[in-house]
């Protein structure tokens, strides 16, 4: 549905997007992930024909963004970072205007306006001025205008930015509900959002593509070396952590063991193992050595860690801020 090849955008001096390539299949929700200023918006703007790429190209629904921008625009619905609303228009009137702009007319236009009002739950503000709407409603009207012409592809730039937690959940559900009919690209710098809504993830950092894969694959890949947290204690005072580490490293399958934290006489060790199940061995070894096994749990690998691994600490630090 979307195919991006060596897409590059150069501003006066800096390279905003640097030879990015990826593919999106029909009906998928793809999370476009990266710290602020990574080039997400720029990439989206090139896909929606808002600006032309410096080099490289992209096709949307089989049409080239440079060669046939009008055809691409007909098939794309775009919600920019701040919803493009005219404050002096009423919701219904605005959606009618956008519908006309996208080529709808007559009974079909009316039907689509009714449909998107219902779908995006903006029916009750239909006769209100857009300038008076709350942030949550503004975002939903923004989504409504993006889907008014039933586009094949939806491009959503940070659709949940600035919403409260309840509104975020509502918006995510709405987006998930739209996935069947539309191919969706959504950008975000919020990681759980990708884990919750997306099937596929494209991670970029400083304009470069860092990873593109399905969310589950990416999690598995990072988990390839499973990491466990083991808390070891002793009834008779402190344990010598060096001894424990040596013992743990002797267990077959363990590739690395180290002391992670110490709270008084409680020592937490991080044990990395090759793929395979070493928890039983671990537990047995600790108990047989005469220590207490207080806790044994997998260190959860979230996208956050993958993100940190992939984009490097500096970029992720910026993203978290």
């Amino acid at each position: 549905m979307i195919s991006v090849k060596q897409l590059t955008k150069k501003y006066a001096r800096n390279l905003a997007v640097d030879h990015i390539s990826f593919e999106v299949q029909k009906g998928q929700i793809v999370g476009f992930l990266g710290p602020n200023g990574a080039g997400k918006t720029t990439t989206m703007r090139m896909l929606t024909c808002f600006m032309p790429p410096t080099s490289g190209g992209a096709t949307v629904a089989g049409f080239d963004v440079l060669e046939q921008p009008l055809e691409v625009k007909k098939r794309i619905g775009y919600l920019p970072e701040s919803p493009p609303l005219y404050p002096e228009m009423e919701t219904g009137e605005y959606l009618t205007f956008v519908g006309r702009l996208k080529g709808l007319s007559g009974a079909e236009l009316k039907k689509r306006v009714d449909y998107v009002c219902d779908r995006c739950a903006v029916e009750d503000v239909r006769n209100k001025l857009l300038g008076r709407l709350s942030k949550g409603y503004r975002q939903r009207v923004g989504l409504a205008q993006a889907i008014i012409h039933n586009p094949d592809v939806l491009v959503l730039d940070e659709p949940t930015a600035g919403l409260d937690p309840k509104q975020i959940n509502e918006t995510r559900d709405l987006i998930k509900g739209l996935a069947g009919d539309h191919t969706i690209i959504l950008s975000t710098h919020i990681l759980p959002e990708v884990e919750q809504t997306c099937e596929q993830v494209v991670i970029i950092s400083k304009g470069k593509l860092v990873a593109t894969d399905s969310v589950t694959n990416l999690q598995n890949r990072a988990r390839g070396a499973e990491s466990l947290l083991v808390e070891v204690g002793s009834r008779d005072g402190a344990v010598d952590s060096a001894v424990v580490v040596t013992r743990l490293q002797q267990i077959p399958g363990v590739s690395r063991a180290q002391l992670k934290t110490t709270h008084g006489d409680r020592n937490v060790f991080e044990v990395e193992s090759q793929k395979g199940f070493v928890r039983g061995e671990l537990a047995r070894a600790v108990v047989q050595a005469g220590w207490d096994l207080n806790e044994l749990r997998p260190a959860a690998v979230s996208l956050e860690e993958i993100f940190l691994q992939l984009t490097g600490a500096e970029a992720a630090g910026k993203g978290a801020a």
Binding site: C49, F50, K73, I76, Y78, P80, L101, K102, G103
Partner: peptide
Amino acid sequence: TIELLVTSP
């Protein structure tokens, strides 16, 4: 809103 106009067909 210019983004809406420019990304419309």
